[in-house]
């Protein structure tokens, strides 16, 4: 099958989802990100790789952290960056997505970072742009958020380098979560032997087992002896209908507390993609506790996004 993310030589051309990417490419991104972590700690936090390139962040859906880290990543690569919150500009005047993109191409944009509430939006744009322009999916609907999945596995690899000997639990609203889907694909592609999902039936997609995960409805059973606990945000804004009785009830059953975390391995790490609902999916004592790597995830997010952008820009065919 034709993979729109890869060029004729099997090199990464767009980053749209982790599904369908070979392990070698995931490892190339993670290894490159390793080198970029050092750049952010230097006196000059910049390298000249994307000098003269223009990166456009088009966010049809709000996100402070993702947009900021993409912006910083592009700036640390010396690119020029434009960030548009389209929700508040042309789209509200009736312009179509492709018109927005075409206008930016007319301004000589080289790379697009797209966030959209509709699944498939980044694919749609990738199919539309000329061959020398790259598209990165920064989250599309419930489908995929590949750079989040990558930064999560990068964080895991930094704390638990032996990926082939890990037990990872993903807890919470898997049904509405593009992050969970990207995490599952990244973990299984990289050979993590045991990935568990812990959630009530109403917050799990049907056939979730087909992704290669073990399903638990009881959080205490699911956390037993895991090395990594990846919490998901309860997606209130994507929730329609009565999937949950109340957020207090949810916290009681699926909120991560010190006492539930004690069931995991003593050196287990706790992750959360943000923004956190404290007291809903995670207790403050855990979020701020010494097993939490939630802020390092943010730091690594910049290095991972620098790696993705520089690999894509390096795979540009002559137009």
């Amino acid at each position: 099958m034709n993979n729109p993310q890869l060029d004729r030589n099997g090199q990464l051309k767009h980053l749209l989802s982790i599904e369908g990417l070979p392990r070698a490419i995931l490892n190339q991104i993670l290894d490159t990100a390793e080198s970029f972590t050092g750049v952010s700690e230097r006196e000059v936090k910049k390298v000249p790789l994307l000098r003269g390139k223009t990166v456009c962040n088009i966010f049809f859906e709000n996100s402070t952290r993702t947009r900021t880290t993409f912006e910083l990543a592009a700036k640390r690569l010396s690119a020029d960056v434009v960030s548009l919150n389209v929700g508040t500009s042309s789209q509200s005047k009736g312009e179509t997505i492709l018109d927005t993109v075409d206008n930016l191409i007319a301004m000589h944009a080289d790379m697009f970072v797209i966030r959209h509430a509709q699944s498939g939006a980044a694919h749609f744009i990738a199919q539309h742009v000329p061959a020398d322009i790259h598209v990165i999916n920064a989250g599309d609907g419930r489908h995929s958020h590949p750079t989040q999945g990558l930064l999560d596995v990068f964080t895991i690899r930094r704390y638990k380098p032996d990926m082939h000997n890990l037990r990872v639990a993903i807890v919470g609203d898997v049904l509405h979560s593009r992050v969970a889907r990207s995490e599952i694909h990244a973990l299984t592609t990289l050979g993590v032997p045991e990935v568990r999902v812990i959630a009530p039936k109403t917050l799990l997609p049907t056939d979730v087992e087909k992704l290669g995960v073990q399903v638990y409805h009881d959080m205490r059973a699911g956390l037993k002896d895991v090395d990594v606990v990846m919490m998901l945000r309860l997606q209130n804004e994507r929730m329609s209908g009565a999937l949950l009785p109340s957020s207090q009830e949810y916290f009681k059953c699926y909120g991560l507390t010190q006492d539930k975390l004690a069931l995991a391995r003593p050196d287990a790490i706790v992750m959360h993609p943000g923004p956190m609902n404290r007291g809903v999916e995670i207790d403050s004592a855990v979020a701020d506790g010494n097993q939490s790597v939630i802020l390092p995830q943010v730091t690594y997010g910049i290095a991972v996004r620098m790696a993705v952008m520089s690999i894509l820009a390096g795979n540009t065919e002559a137009a």
Partner: peptide, 14 residues
């Protein structure tokens, strides 16, 4: 870089 892309195996500078 613009001709041959990023080297596939980069080691961190230290």
């Amino acid at each position: 870089f613009s001709r041959i892309g990023l080297h596939p195996q980069i080691k961190p500078s230290n």
